[in-house]
Every structure is written in structure tokens, then in C-alpha cells.
């Protein structure tokens, strides 16, 4: 059962602020979808290996050779806020 507390917990893990007014709506929607995907519990998967990669491609490497990095102009072209060659964010520890 997806309670408001569960929605709150999941939202905080996901770093999403959810207004209290929306908790039960999201909870209901999640509940619906989870109920549907619970269909999978009908399957006997005890001897089935999981598929995380669809094809058995293995051992893809790059060699340890240096490639050009972004120029400082490029590296900060999209920065929300920067200061003295650094990306700037609100203080982390208050």
C-alpha cells in the first residue's frame, strides 16, 4: 500500500518536493501502476537469469590515451552560476 508517508519517502529519495496536497494523488497513481506491474508475481522466475544488457557484448574498453578536454569557455558556457573557474552552488554545509 502506497501511503502518503511512502510517497514522501520516495519523493525525498528522488529529491522531489511534493506539496502535501498532491501526496494522495501521486500515491493513488503509483498504487495503480504497482498493482498492475504486480502481474509479474504470477511468473515463476526462480530459474530464470536476469537480463540487464540485452546482448552479450563484453569487454569494451578505451585505451589509456589522453583526449582533449573542454576549453574553459565551453566548460562554463552552460553553467548556471560560476565563480573564479568553479561552478557555484548554494552552501552545502550550513
Amino acid at each position: 500500500m502506497i501511503t502518503n508517508d511512502t510517497v514522501k519517502y520516495i519523493a525525498s529519495l528522488s529529491r522531489l518536493h511534493i506539496d502535501d496536497a498532491d501526496l494522495s494523488r501521486f500515491g493513488g497513481e503509483l498504487q495503480n501502476i504497482l498493482q498492475y506491474v504486480d502481474k509479474l508475481s504470477e511468473l515463476d522466475v526462480s530459474n530464470v537469469p536476469p537480463t540487464s544488457h540485452v546482448f552479450r557484448v563484453e569487454n569494451v574498453f578505451r585505451e589509456d590515451t589522453i583526449l582533449p578536454s573542454l576549453s574553459p569557455v565551453e566548460a562554463f558556457s552552460f553553467a548556471i552560476e560560476s565563480h573564479d573557474g568553479h561552478y557555484k552552488v548554494p552552501k552545502v554545509i550550513e
Binding site: 578505451r62 582533449p68 578536454s69 573542454l70 566548460a75 573557474g85
Partner: peptide
């Protein structure tokens, strides 16, 4: 996971890529 230099003490944000 990328070809940026793995070096200590370089000027900030000069060995970065997408």
C-alpha cells in the same frame, strides 16, 4: 571513463569533458 587527463593540482575545471 573518459580521455581527460588524470592529474593532480591542475587549474580547476580544466580537465573536464561531457
Amino acid at each position: 571513463f573518459c580521455g581527460c587527463r588524470n592529474d593532480f593540482g591542475l587549474e580547476a575545471n580544466t580537465c573536464v569533458c561531457p
